[in-house]
């Protein structure tokens, strides 16, 4: 084993080690990003659920009547369907 050869082997080992560390770092960053996306998904789901509840409140028949009354509007009833002339 000559010194240059030993140095070369040492350099190789360090390079592999650095590559492993870099790869691990990238993996950790990717996994962390997945975790963040997961948390964002949960947050978006939370907002979706709240929006659903809000929509449900707006679709409630009493609420519709109240909003119409607040806007001084009347709910036009459907025309009564008369018996056809015979």
């Amino acid at each position: 084993m000559t010194v240059p050869r030993a140095l070369f082997i040492l350099f190789l080992m360090v390079a592999i080690g650095v590559a492993i560390v870099v790869f691990r770092g990238e993996s950790a960053r990717a996994a962390n990003r997945i975790q963040q996306l997961h948390a964002e998904t949960i947050e978006l789901e939370q907002r979706l659920w709240s929006a659903e509840i809000e929509l449900a409140r707006m679709r409630e028949p009493r609420a519709i009547r109240q909003r119409a009354a607040d806007m001084n509007l009347s709910i036009v009833p459907p025309e009564p369907i008369a018996r056809p002339r015979q």
Binding site: Q46, W49, E52, I53, A56, R59
Partner: peptide, 19 residues
């Protein structure tokens, strides 16, 4: 798991789970 909705005949939400 999110608890399911209870809907009326026209799909209006009567009962729902939120956070």
């Amino acid at each position: 798991a999110r608890r399911g909705l209870i809907l009326d005949a026209r799909g209006r939400i009567i009962s729902a789970t939120t956070l």
